[in-house]
Every structure is written in structure tokens, then in C-alpha cells.
Amino acid sequence: MGFGDYPKEYNPAVHGPYDPARYYGKPDTPFGQLKISEIGSWFARRNKSPSAVAGACSRAWWRWQHKYMQPKKVGMAPLFQLLVGSMTFFYVINYGKMKHHRNYKYH
């Protein structure tokens, strides 16, 4: 699978039009339905190659797009989500400098 190709599991004759938000491989148990003890084995089963991680990020992006950004009549919610997300991101990357503004010495 090179750049710009469909995933290996995608078969247009069976799956129809390609949905970039969808995983066409064999589905595992959703993360939200796991028990705490199963998380380790679930994570061990994951494909952690760079292309798989990129694919997962891409699917997440498109799922978010389809759900919040692309419907016909959207509100401000996706923009607020982007705002909060970017605020959190920049807070995290600047956290090393923020730490110096702490007011209390003992907690």
C-alpha cells in the first residue's frame, strides 16, 4: 500500500463508495466497552506501524468532520471544539514556561 491508495481491506464491489471515516478491517471490541483488565491485551493487538497510526488519525479526523463539520446546518460547536483543543494543545506545549507563574510554594 503506497501513498494515496485505498486500505488493503477495502473492496469497492463489496463495500461500495469509500468512506474515509470507516475502518474496513476486521473490527475489534470498541475501546469504550473494554474492561480494565482487557486494555493491555487490546492494546497489544493493535497495529502500531506508522502507516496504521496515520490511518487511525485520518479516520478520526474524518469521523469528526462528518459528525460536526460537514452536516448541512452546523452550529458553533465544531469551532468551539477546535478552539478548546488548540487552547489545550498550546497550554500543554507551553506548560514548562507556565510552571514558573505558580503562586504557592506548598500545596
Partner: peptide
Amino acid sequence: SATEVSGVRDEKNFPRPVRGEPGKVRLGF
């Protein structure tokens, strides 16, 4: 190209994606 691959179209598990309503949120986001 769809002419090259074979298989039966699985409409039940892979329905044609439709444009849905926006997802519900609370507190704005």
C-alpha cells in the same frame, strides 16, 4: 476500478454513507 474486483455488495453492513444531522454537544462543545 470496480470492474476488476469481484464480490457481492454488502448493503447491510456497509450502507451508502448519508449526510447526517450534526452531533449533539453540551456546554457548547
